[in-house]
């Protein structure tokens, strides 16, 4: 396969970026998308130029490191697939491919296709956990969890924190990311103690980080490589309303 790539190049956060054209030659359809980029980079290096910087690590679709908007869709054209799992057999020989970084104010570009997603970590730090300390917990079977609830919690916690939902959202909102964690923990009896406080502080942290507001476009769901559903946002909204009636204590613990 031979392809024409238009890749976003940006030297640093403060620099201006632009699309640069590359020719990807002799690409095997068996290659993954990132292996295609590896091949292009080898060529760039041999030409004495700086290769395209992109985030990647596990290359098996679970670490959430890879982050590219390919032909206008975060993680590219194949449904429920991260960039690293996307294979070249999904592209047409002779076609062109646009490759851009996640774009959102909360995700400043570090270099080329690499963005800073630490804002997502800070949403979790605000309260995306159960405040249990190590040791002194009851036996694992002491609290029963229905099969359905455990399943729903698992569905929500499959989120890999890649940020595709933000990249896809016309509002740059991180609501799907936030909702997946809120739902995961609210579905479990262990997580319900802090549920009211959690939903408030996490959504507030989301706004503070500069993410936009959710207005139900559902683009996030369409882009999510792990099939996280917008129903979890509905669940977050229910949790938020319930929290108002519970008169949640809002202050962070000191």
């Amino acid at each position: 396969m031979n392809l024409t790539l238009f890749v976003w190049r940006q030297k640093g956060p403060a620099e201006k970026g632009r699309l640069e054209q590359f020719n990807a030659k002799d690409i095997s359809p068996e290659m993954s998308f990132l292996e295609m980029l590896d091949t292009v980079n080898e060529g760039i290096i041999k030409d004495g130029k700086e290769p395209i910087a992109f985030d990647h690590d596990c290359r098996e679709g679970i670490c959430g490191m890879c982050s590219q908007v390919i032909n206008g869709v975060p993680h590219g054209p194949q449904e429920k697939t991260t960039v690293c799992q996307l294979h070249m057999r999904n592209f047409k020989d002779g076609g062109s491919i646009y490759i851009e970084p996640w774009r959102a104010r909360a995700f400043p570009v570090i270099k080329d296709l690499i963005v800073d997603r630490s804002a997502l970590d800070r949403i979790i730090q605000a309260g995306g956990y159960i405040s249990v300390h190590t040791g002194g917990v009851p036996d694992a079977n002491a609290v029963l969890v229905s099969n359905d609830d455990a399943d729903a919690a698992m569905d929500a916690s499959e989120c890999i924190g890649c940020g595709a939902c933000v990249a896809a959202c016309p509002n740059g909102s991180a609501m799907l990311f936030t909702a997946s964690k809120v739902t995961h923990l609210a579905m479990l009896p262990q997580g319900q103690v802090e549920a009211a406080r959690r939903v408030c502080v996490m959504t507030e942290a989301m706004t503070q980080e500069g993410f936009g507001n959710c207005s139900n476009h559902y683009e996030c769901q369409a882009a999510c490589p792990k099939g996280i559903r917008v129903q979890f946002i509905a669940k977050l909204n229910r949790e938020f309303i319930r929290a108002q009636f519970k008169g949640a204590r809002r202050e962070s613990p000191q």
């Binding site: 206008g72 851009e100 740059g172 909102s173 683009e219």
Partner: peptide, 19 residues
């Protein structure tokens, strides 16, 4: 206004899927 601020520069190519 907030949503507008939350976005930076447009994508050169952006496809909408479900909106």
């Amino acid at each position: 206004l907030e949503n507008h601020k939350a976005r930076t520069g447009p994508y050169a190519l952006k496809k909408s899927i479900s909106t």
